[in-house]
Simulated assay, not measured.
Amino acid sequence: MGSSNTRFRMTGQDIVKECDGNSEVKNLHILVTGATSGIGIETGRILALAGANVYLVGRSETKLNEVRENISKEIQKQSSTGTVQGAICDLNSLASIKQFAEKFIRDKSPLNILILNAGILNFNFAQTVDGLEQVMGVNHIGHAYLTQLLMPALIANAPSRIVIVSSQVHVGSPLNYQALEHMSSTADNAKKGWGMISSYQQSKLANLLFARAIASRYKDKQVTAYSLHPGVIDTNLTSSIPLSRLLTILYKKKTPEQGAATTVYCALKPGLENETGRYFNDSTVTHLADKWTDEDINTLWEWTEKVIRERTTNL
């Protein structure tokens, strides 16, 4: 199913109107990672204004407070029933993720929709606090660990959804686990073979495969998962990259308002249960994720579980 130009231009607000009969949004508790910049702010804002109870997750308390205050003012102005609250969680640190998620579960906070929106694109090779290649560590492993820890809340509040912001940059080489292991090692030449675009491509492919893996494993628990391309948007993600280096991933651009649309669609659109595991673009389902086999999905799942197990033993 191809997407039309009209759907390319749709904003998160347009999607909320499209799902208007779905007044369920007022009862939803939605968590958004990377909620202090770009499409993360817009996603949280639109969902809260639509009446949802939104947890904004970020790593800077100052930024979180600012975003929360701005959205709260808008909620009051529009007399929306939505709410926003901020929570600190640094995806660069597995200990920070654990601390946040364990408190969330302990507080019995309700959760219907988990939006894994945060993402980084590095100009130089770096590793996380836990020694993982940073782009894969933040974009996939951190999110996978967060999902693992929050799964009891999603199951308890089912039917629930996990929405994963991937990218059309995912198209390319299959995951190279050997290279990923090497880049997450303490070897002097750990950055051997690392590339700015390739590291991002690998992490975004992992996002897509992870949605497929969740879909197949949790369908019977009524937890569905979707991955998506938000569009190419001028956000903090690309702020430190020289323009010429970005030519390979530049496409027709969207505004942050348009960039949040597909995420909002996957979160709110009624009847998407039958599309679990699929990849969306321009608020339209595609078959791009279907080409990956069960073997691909299982390998990604097992590798992810192994990495998390190894890196969290002493936490």
Rank of each mutant, 00 (worst) to 15 (best):
N117F: 02
L243H: 11
Y265V: 06
V165C: 09
T276S: 15
S166L: 02
I71L: 04
P230C: 05
P159E: 15
A187G: 02
F104M: 04
S216P: 01
S198L: 13
Q78V: 12
I41D: 05
S240C: 08
P159H: 10
L175C: 13
H170T: 05
N70D: 09
I41L: 02
G131V: 04
K191C: 09
L300A: 03
L315K: 12
N70C: 12
R68P: 01
T224H: 10
A206H: 03
Q127S: 07
Q201F: 11
T313A: 15
L175S: 06
T81E: 06
V307G: 05
G34I: 06
L91Y: 00
I115A: 03
E24A: 11
A225S: 01
G44L: 02
K103N: 13
T284R: 01
R161H: 02
S167V: 04
S166N: 07
V54S: 07
I233N: 00
K306E: 13
A118M: 04
K306I: 12
S109C: 14
A260G: 07
A260T: 07
N5R: 15
G21W: 12
G172E: 08
Q78K: 14
R9W: 15
V16Y: 04
G2C: 12
A190T: 09
N281H: 11
D234W: 07
Q222S: 12
N139D: 15
R7D: 11
K108W: 04
Q85W: 06
I71Q: 01
W301G: 02
R59C: 13
L91A: 03
E273Q: 14
T263V: 05
R7Q: 13
E42D: 07
A118P: 08
D130T: 14
G172R: 09
I308A: 02
G2Y: 00
H229T: 12
R9D: 03
E302G: 01
Y177A: 08
V264A: 08
L209K: 07
A225V: 03
G277R: 02
G34C: 05
T238P: 00
N117V: 10
N22M: 11
L175Q: 10
K254Q: 07
T276L: 01
T286F: 12
K252Y: 14
K26Q: 11
G21A: 10
G137T: 03
I46C: 05
L180D: 02
S216N: 14
K204R: 06
L31P: 00
V54Q: 02
V285K: 08
T33D: 11
L121I: 14
K63L: 15
R309V: 10
E61Y: 02
T11R: 03
T263C: 10
K191Q: 15
D20V: 09
D14A: 05
N22W: 10
N274A: 14
E66T: 14
N65F: 04
K192V: 09
